[in-house]
């Protein structure tokens, strides 16, 4: 314990961090809401969507959204635009987006 106190006195926090080559910052995982904000320009709230037009993603099952995105990406599901946009996202990102919308219920 004595040596711990001595060491703490000897190595201030900033030095410790600098020696580890780490900037003194806290990393954070990407908030899925930020990622899903790529989608909401076109895919609106359930209550406001016009039938027969661009669907809302709110409340859709996670597995369904993941499968559709893969189908778009691999050309199995024809589309006007989604077969192109789907190629821009990784599996991990698609999974986060799908989970976000699955948990989002109308109006929230």
């Amino acid at each position: 314990m004595k040596s711990l106190i001595m060491l703490l006195g000897f190595y201030p926090l900033t030095v410790v961090l600098a020696q580890q080559g780490q900037p003194p910052v806290i990393t954070t995982t990407v908030n899925p809401a930020y990622l899903a904000a790529n989608c909401t320009n076109c895919h609106g709230a359930k209550a406001t969507v016009v039938p027969g037009s661009i669907p809302s993603l709110e409340g859709l099952q996670k597995e369904y959204v993941i499968e559709q995105m893969k189908a778009f990406r691999e050309g199995r599901r024809p589309a006007t635009i989604m077969h192109q946009l789907a190629k821009g996202y990784t599996d991990e990102q698609i999974s986060l987006i799908a989970e976000y919308f699955a948990q989002k219920t109308a109006g929230k």
């Binding site: 320009n41 076109c42 037009s53 661009i54 006007t80 635009i81």
Partner: peptide, 25 residues
């Protein structure tokens, strides 16, 4: 960037829908 293959009415419907949604967004 990716493009349409030709002008089409379905994208006309989507374009108007996009406008309503993005204004709300």
């Amino acid at each position: 960037p990716a493009l349409s293959t030709e002008p089409n009415a379905l994208e006309g419907v989507y374009a108007l829908s996009w406008a309503q949604t993005v204004w709300a967004d």
